[in-house]
Design a protein around this nucleic acid. Sequence first.
DNA 1: CCTATGACCATAG
DNA 2: CCTATGGCCATAG
Length: 108
Amino acid sequence: MKNTREARQRTQQDFSERVWQLVAAIPSGNVATYGQIATLAGSPQRSRLVGRILSHLPAESRLPWYRVINAQGKISNPDPKRQQQLLELDGVEVKLLRVKLRRYQWQS
DNA sequence: CCTATGACCATAG
DNA sequence: CCTATGGCCATAG
């Protein structure tokens, strides 16, 4: 298995596509964690990259990025107000930027 | 190459 | 509950 720049980019592209696919599959009313998405996408170590990928979505994207929060159940988006509002439209309770994972975490 | 910086995470105190 | 720490990975300078 050669390790060319192209090959590396391809695997990262694959990862991104899986992330998009998985995020799109999170049902309304549920949330997932960055680590959960990374694990389901096949790379448990890349939770950080999941956040990066979501942060780079085009503004007009219809992907429900706001359904992804951190492992503590907390919104870690630097601009959390919009995310909280969108989650509440889903019927998810948010208190002090926090969601009860026990209740809302996506059981994939 | 090295350092700094993230929408992260688990663990320890 | 909080902060600190070490680990992780990709990108930018």
